[in-house]
Design a protein around this nucleic acid. Structure first.
Lengths: 147, 147
DNA sequence: TCCTTATTGATAATAATTATCATTATCAGT
DNA sequence: ACTGATAATGATAATTATTATCAATAAGGA
């Protein structure tokens, strides 16, 4: 994110905090600046570590509390990568797409018939990345939990 | 997974273990049975908890070791859901797809121009789910890390 | 069946997250 | 600009999850 974009995002976020009755404090601003200025998705610990290099560092608890608030407001989201673990499931050949019920956690594996390949090629050309894997996951409520 | 499918999967897995020089032990079999028989993606702790109800329960360390082995063999994979955290990123309107470099962690947000909506409708009709969110993430190596 | 050694389970060590609470700082209302 | 009510902080204790250690055990080839 470019510096001017960071500034803009922070202003938007500050408005959102005030609209929801939250105060804009120095620690919160620091967390938000670190997130908005980062090239990579950061963990809570990484955000805390970065703050240690600033003239006035954060308490680790404030990092967690601020992240919780920002997520509740829908201003940030969590990014998941291979390596961290939320659940274990057998690998089935050719089945890469998962459908997960938010309520009961039940999961279904669905056949992949979206034209992802063409999309991947376009992305590679556009970004210079070499893409070697992808995840497509759907979240919602299953038939049982809806009724 | 149906009981007969579980049996089938376990046999396949056992072959894979032996082919790679791993022994098939009672604890490993228990972990595999629990995973294969489950309707939902389980965490290591949940697998351990389920084993406590069995006549001979698992050591928690064996659960982690078995999962590590199964993943190395490509027999299981990790499923990620909203709520667990691997990294934090600002939410940008209409930008739901992420491209992540395995090496440096750099992330790019890419415009979503895949026809996901039609796919979602088909999934809903097919499964009875109400889908309210989805994640499409691509993993690979960025231009810089490739060279 | 025996023997080699991979594997286990108990537990200690480490790391990450959440809870507690006295002190501090925000900001609405003068 | 000042004040006061109270939201928020930081230090740290408590909890939880994961990894490392090592003597005892058990898998499976000879």
């Amino acid at each position: 994110m470019t510096p001017s974009n960071v500034e803009q995002v922070l202003n938007t976020w500050q408005d959102s905090l005030h609209q929801h009755g939250y105060r804009m404090t120095r620690p919160r601003r620091q967390v938000m600046e670190i997130i908005a200025a980062s090239e990579t998705a950061l963990t809570p610990q990484e955000i805390y570590q970065k703050s240690l290099e600033l003239e006035r560092s954060l308490g680790i608890a404030s990092v967690y509390r601020t992240l919780e608030m920002l997520e509740e407001l829908g201003l940030i989201q969590q990014i998941h990568q291979p390596g961290g673990c939320h659940g274990i499931w057998p690998t089935l050949e050719g089945h890469k797409h998962h459908l997960i019920c938010r309520d009961c956690g039940q999961m279904q594996v669905i056949e992949g018939n979206v034209d992802i390949d063409g999309y991947i090629t376009a992305i590679e050309k556009q970004t210079g990345y070499r893409v070697d894997d992808h995840w497509l996951q759907f979240f919602g409520r299953c038939d049982g939990c809806l009724n």
